[in-house]
Simulated scan of single mutants.
Amino acid sequence: MADPHTAVLREVLVRYLDAWTPSVLRSHRRATYVEAGRDDSAALRVFGEFADRLAGHELDVVLLSAGTTPAETPPGLSVRAVDDPADLTVTGPVLAHVDATEGGVLDEPAAWRLVDSLPPGKGREVLLALPPATEEDVRAHRVWLRDAGLAYAVTVELADDDGNSRLLLFATGSDKHLTTFKNELWAADEFAGIRYRDPRDAEHALVDISLTPQLLPLRRVLLDELARRGSCTVADLQRHTLHETIYRPADTIGVLTAAASAGAISREPAKGRLTPKTVVRSVT
């Protein structure tokens, strides 16, 4: 049985593929999925569920360092194995899943070379499982990704009760896809003792995996950001939540509503439900 870290990573991948696959099939005649994980069967099962939608499209599945390819694949699904990442060629939008943790298909330097080799474009996305990283390492990862043209990213640690962790990193050129990934991240089932942690959180708080997660780490981030700005719209802080935290834009509303009720911030208009256009101000 897979360890809990791997189980969570696999479920997050499957959930995102359930959203990514119909999206690229609607918009493009050809797309590529690159698998460099420990098990390609989960992704292939997802693609099999969309066999009826593959007609008239071509979904190219590339298995890195795989020994064999499946004997049967749905029509419209092309599966091939590539031993050397340098030989990788892709067409159309691409999602690459790479496990660069101990015992994975690629080591971490090779994983970053693969990311750098993917063709530019808004449709390029990567989902990486990496060894534990310091805050400085995470900052360097995000700089690398921005330089590679992947402007939007989320980095989240998967930590167990014994202090073991892995870093999950998703990067994309699409705000919309980043929001989708975060929704799936929090919708995953909780596996024995695995919790999320934002590697950039100064308090290193552990948060249970839940559709309604504990929001104290987000509250600290948003109140600090609001104090820095003085005032801004709720939409501004929703964008900050999306781009700079492990949380979803929708979580911003709950934090700001509670903060306004507690007198920690002021708002205009003073009453009614918060909307993206509501202006909030720091009171410190």
Results as ranks from 00 to 15, higher is better:
250 A>I: 13
280 V>I: 12
56 G>I: 03
145 L>G: 00
166 R>L: 13
284 T>V: 14
203 E>W: 05
35 E>V: 07
28 H>R: 15
124 R>T: 15
241 T>V: 03
223 L>Y: 00
265 I>E: 09
237 L>C: 06
77 L>Y: 00
203 E>G: 03
20 W>G: 00
268 E>V: 15
146 R>C: 03
64 L>M: 06
205 A>Q: 12
41 S>K: 13
34 V>W: 07
179 T>A: 14
35 E>H: 13
106 L>T: 07
229 R>T: 04
227 A>I: 01
45 R>L: 12
59 L>I: 05
56 G>S: 02
93 P>G: 03
246 I>V: 14
173 G>Y: 04
156 V>A: 15
96 A>P: 09
175 D>G: 06
203 E>M: 07
62 V>N: 01
72 E>G: 00
66 A>N: 13
193 G>W: 11
32 T>K: 02
139 R>H: 09
226 L>N: 08
260 A>I: 10
3 D>F: 01
194 I>R: 14
170 F>T: 08
221 V>R: 12
194 I>H: 13
276 P>Q: 07
194 I>V: 15
216 L>K: 15
185 L>I: 05
199 P>L: 01
272 G>D: 00
157 E>L: 14
7 A>P: 00
43 A>F: 09
115 V>D: 09
119 P>F: 04
149 G>Q: 06
77 L>R: 05
92 G>P: 11
255 V>N: 06
91 T>V: 13
96 A>E: 10
170 F>Y: 15
177 H>G: 11
148 A>S: 14
120 P>I: 05
38 R>D: 07
67 G>A: 09
11 E>S: 08
8 V>D: 02
110 A>E: 15
74 P>H: 04
86 A>K: 11
284 T>Q: 14
183 N>W: 01
206 L>H: 13
57 H>C: 10
26 R>W: 09
75 P>C: 00
261 S>F: 11
20 W>V: 02
148 A>C: 11
21 T>V: 15
9 L>F: 10
77 L>C: 07
203 E>S: 08
193 G>R: 14
103 G>I: 11
229 R>H: 05
160 D>V: 07
90 V>W: 01
76 G>I: 02
93 P>V: 04
147 D>H: 10
7 A>V: 12
14 V>K: 06
118 L>Q: 04
252 T>G: 06
83 D>F: 01
246 I>A: 06
229 R>Y: 02
222 L>Y: 02
18 D>S: 12
239 R>I: 12
232 C>P: 08
238 Q>K: 14
209 I>T: 13
250 A>K: 12
80 R>G: 03
241 T>N: 04
11 E>I: 10
231 S>Q: 15
55 A>N: 06
38 R>S: 12
265 I>K: 09
59 L>H: 03
12 V>Y: 03
200 R>I: 07
162 D>G: 08
284 T>I: 12
279 V>L: 13
112 W>V: 05
